[in-house]
Amino acid sequence: MKPPPVVYHGPDTLEEAVRLLAEHGAEAKVLAGGQSLVPMLNMRLTAPRRLVDVNRLDELAYVRSDRHGVRVGALARHADVERATHAFETVPLLRQAVRTVAHPTIRNRGTTVGSLVHADPAGEMPAVLALLDGEVLLRSERDGERTVAAADFFVGPMESACREDEVAVEAYFPRPAGRTGTDWRELSRRSGDYALCGVGTLVRVDDAGAVVAARAAYIAMGSVPQVVDLTEAAADGDWSAAAESAADQLDPEDDIHASAEYRRHLARVLTARSLKASYEAVAP
């Protein structure tokens, strides 16, 4: 459990970081919070020749909100997102979900943008970004800045659209339009563990309380965050039927903690509970 030899770079500016990746990207990894990367290094599951540590880029340690949404800089820790009241008021789902990310000590160190780039299918924040139709701002020496929508960002398990010469600079979580309620819930073996199944929902209602939009996003139920549109299925407020329809569209796998069938069952149960909670948060 000792990492193999690695060359360490600690750039002081974003420009320098981007330049280092332009030069060494193929053999480098960006180190932010290190909550996934460092254990993988120690177990020699990954062996990059170089680390580009972005922890000195203080200008990226921000969580900013306006009436359109929340912008999270690359060096904002999960705990910053969790604690930012303005972010909660703008996009309540952020706090609802981020508080289920691992444990406080991990949230104090791990970054939200880092978890997006890591693209663990069991990670909460990728699913939140996907549910909200958010986007990620990337920067490289070659292309300058580019923005990738959540739907295109998560490519496969542990694989995002962030190229090896790019730094993910910021994630943008838009505020849902209209009268929208959100909810996040999951069941994990122990508190703070990766969820056996996690679901976030979003329900928009009109002034009469009729459902005009409903969506759910899932973690640990496929190789990337699974987003299911349930507007039609939930139109008449039958959450169980909507949950049934959602579960039919998921394809979870067995592992040592739970069977695929149980996971699908959980998706059904949690979706119904979550849709109801989202609805009740905004129903007249």
Partner: peptide
């Protein structure tokens, strides 16, 4: 041994 780490060998936390 497929769960040879504290991530997958589930020792209860104080919360459990």
């Amino acid at each position: 041994l497929v769960n040879a780490s504290y991530m997958d060998f589930l020792i209860p936390f104080s919360t459990e």
